[in-house]
Nucleic acid binder design. Structure first.
Lengths: 375, 375
DNA sequence: TTAAAAAGTTTCCGCGCGTAAAATTTTGGT
DNA sequence: ACCAAAATTTTACGCGCGGAAACTTTTTAA
């Protein structure tokens, strides 16, 4: 064996000696360095340079724990010396399963999704996977397009917050049967391994209780045809909570399509204020972005918002949107548990990839009341 | 030729006939269908099925215009019938150049970047490239990590809005020498093919002129150590404009690190209001997010914002942030030309990929004054 | 009509890695 | 020191495609 591999053994020894001496010896001839800096072009080169067989190197990159400790150390040491990285395309071509994870959100222009995407991305990377982030930009066709192009990336899994009502459910369902899929934020029945999101029904109960305790029972302000199914749960939660407390629920719906919620909230608010006004001096908005628009409308009509003596209207939202701390006044709302939602999504997916059973098809996380000045 | 390819020709004809008849004939035997649904596993299968040689198919996928019109039509017709897509990993492994484009922004939690990223993404797709979006989340290490992992994707180009001051410039410079790179938003000297962004110096001039014309000359509100180099240009633009009009520039800097600009603006604002107050009743903020925080601070201290009689302070920002229309009052600001910036970035890159010369290393776009109620 | 140019076909090889099978070495327990 | 088990090495093939070379067919221009 030694005689056959004479050349590579010599190379290896020479390299080691060179590395050891490098600090102490000043090498005046640049070519001497270049000659030693063997260019590692592929796994074969790296195997030769590190003195380990290529199949073992391959096993290491698939799973570092699949090789013996001493071998792993040798490989990792060589890795520091030579800075080789396997060709990701060649790997993915031959592997049954890539380590790509598709992360799809309905709209990145919404800081809520930007924040949760950040959370999810980090967790994927920490778990040794490669997340790729996509935004459907509120558009059904783009959501379909994303899944379509995702197919060819042979992803190991998909984490998706669907658009909701306008999603092509059949398409997502079909995709989820081929690729392990976990839904978050928006629930689509019977699709994917599991769903994790906020308990929107509870949101309504929580904040209605608070609002009734501290003032006039609220009316509910929402979009007429919400694209997000959470909106329906929230309305139902509101109605149930009102009835439980013996109040008559009053729902105010405004027209508007798309994802420009602030705009819709503002325009809808102006329209209502300028006609009959809200049926209550307390308005619970279906989400924070609508509330931000409504606060803007109240300001324009010089209606002071808040719970103080001279206030004309109380406004509350739901989501704890990153900007809701900076509205005037700061928005009282229900916080979504970003951490819990992203944790559930990622851990459920990776658990399943490693063979765990799915215990819960639907997991709901409770929100917390965030009391600020607006209500 | 016919005799040699007899089998495949027959297959082809049979398939065509089958497709034509399918609508009219009810096929009771499922196996009959299955037999016809020839499974296309690779380009070779597709070549056989479509009756065109594999190298020609390959040429088509590299560039549909590289083949004769009649051939292209035949291929595209077959494509509709068989729904084959080349294996993206095998393609990228062998191609000198992939069609991947890396798109890197400093923070997706900032709707400004979310918006411009959306714009850039769409343009890349329309040009037939595959953008992948990354956010550095305001973190130097993550920016480095992104470029590092991007290397192995062999991207055809990079569109990056660097973090700015905290970027690892040497790393970006090194990357840009291997991969055609266009910068946007934040300028880094001598890096990349070209830079396109707003003329921040002009921003200052524009809004200072307006503010002086309509009231007290403004002071300038900024972060002490802005991570974004644009902030410096904006300050300089402010100072130059003030001096040109014969006013003494007054810069108010507040401490604060990171990308939570609203928070910094609010806390800094409160501190100043509670101590000596601003040196002018007109405050020009370095960017809209600071202004949003400052407006929130003024509200907390019951200082009416705006240009009306009973207002205590005028506040203006720069960026035309998506949310600045909904502040109370709506924020007067300078709009950035999203469209122009993203168009420049994408067109410069793709132009260069196709061999065009770079005409301008630096391209600046003017902003427009957006007059709202806050100043 | 004819010749040159352009496009397509055959045939081959290579990319970098996964992975299987058989042979060999190393390891841990006795 | 010995042996079975575990790990590694050798050897060899295949993945799906890019692309070169030599040849044949079709198109274009004269």
């Amino acid at each position: 064996m030694f005689r056959e591999n004479y050349k590579s053994v010599l190379d290896f020894v020479a390299r080691q000696v060179f590395d050891k001496l490098r600090k102490f010896v000043s090498i005046t001839e640049p070519k001497a360095i270049e000659a030693m800096e063997t260019k590692i072009r592929n796994m074969e080169d790296f195997a030769k340079a590190s003195g380990i067989s290529r199949p073992t190197i391959s096993k290491y990159f698939n799973d570092p724990n699949a090789v013996r400790n001493t071998t792993r150390e040798r490989i990792e040491q060589a890795l520091e010396t030579y800075d080789y990285r396997p060709n990701i395309f060649a790997m993915n071509q031959n592997r049954k399963l890539t380590r790509n994870i598709g992360v799809v959100v309905p709209s990145l222009a919404d800081p809520f999704f930007a924040e949760i995407a950040r959370n999810v991305e980090r967790r994927c990377i920490d778990a040794g996977y490669q997340p790729t982030l996509y935004s459907a930009h509120g558009n059904r066709d783009q959501e379909v397009e994303i899944l379509d192009s995702l197919r060819s990336l042979k992803p190991a899994g998909l984490l998706i917050a669907p658009l909701g009502r306008s999603s092509d459910k059949a398409m997502i369902e079909k995709f989820s049967r081929k690729v392990p899929t976990v839904l978050f934020d928006s629930y689509l029945p019977d699709i994917g391994l599991s769903f994790g999101g906020s308990d929107n029904f509870q949101f309504g109960r929580l904040i209605v209780d608070y609002l009734c305790r501290t003032g006039t029972p609220p009316c509910f302000f929402e979009m007429q045809n919400p694209s997000n199914p959470n909106a329906n749960k929230r309305r139902q939660g509101y109605i149930a909570a009102m009835e439980a407390l013996g109040h008559a629920p009053q729902v105010v719906s405004v027209t508007g399509e798309g994802w420009n919620f602030e705009e819709i909230g503002r325009n809808g608010g102006l329209e209502i204020i300028d006609s009959d006004g809200f049926p209550s001096d307390t308005v619970l908005c279906s989400n924070d972005r609508l509330a931000i628009g409504l606060i803007s409308a109240c300001f324009a009509r010089k209606m002071p918002v808040g719970f103080e003596e001279d206030s004309a209207i109380r406004i509350a939202g739901m989501d704890d949107h990153p900007f809701s701390r900076f509205t005037c006044p700061p928005l009282t709302t229900i916080s979504q548990d970003y951490e819990a939602i992203s944790k559930h999504a990622v851990e459920t997916l990776f658990g399943n990839l490693e063979g765990d059973e799915i215990t819960d098809k639907v997991v709901l996380f409770e929100g917390n009341l965030i009391m600020r000045k607006s209500a």
